[in-house]
């Protein structure tokens, strides 16, 4: 699993963390039942506050991506398997955008407009 954060970015760190882990679950870099690094470990690894990591984990738990168990840490939820069609859809959309030479910024703007 790859987690990326940029302290210089305007997006809050916990949001960046959650987004990174969410992406790993959706693209299946981590699978259901797999244990995520402990909050303490991930915090010292990335040089961020442990509460920031816990905040991200709690958000992911509320979204149903992970389960937080006392003593066992964060585990990828079994229910988080149903993103296959979404992942396929995204692949298709990106391929289509590339074929029509639509830039990433334009594509993102289009998706944002559709989503809102």
């Amino acid at each position: 699993m790859l987690v990326r954060v940029d302290p210089a970015s305007e997006t809050p760190l916990f949001e960046q963390l959650a987004a990174s882990i969410r992406q790993s679950v959706i693209d299946k870099t981590v699978t259901a039942g797999e244990r995520l690094p402990s909050a303490r470990e991930l915090a010292s690894s990335l040089g961020v506050n442990m509460h920031t990591v816990l905040h991200a984990y709690q958000e992911l738990r509320d979204e149903g991506f992970i389960e937080l168990r006392r003593g066992r840490g964060a585990i990828v939820a079994a229910t988080a398997q149903s993103y296959d069609s979404l992942a396929d859809g995204i692949t298709a959309v990106v391929a289509e955008a590339r074929a029509h030479k639509v830039s990433l910024a334009t594509l993102t703007a289009l998706i944002r407009e559709e989503y809102q």
């Binding site: 699993m1 790859l2 987690v3 990326r4 210089a8 970015s9 690094p37 690894s45 040089g47």
Partner: peptide, 15 residues
């Protein structure tokens, strides 16, 4: 290297 700003930090873990 993964594209991104110079200030980005990465953590990779795997078994």
């Amino acid at each position: 290297p993964i594209k991104g700003s110079v200030t980005q930090r990465v953590h990779f873990s795997s078994t």
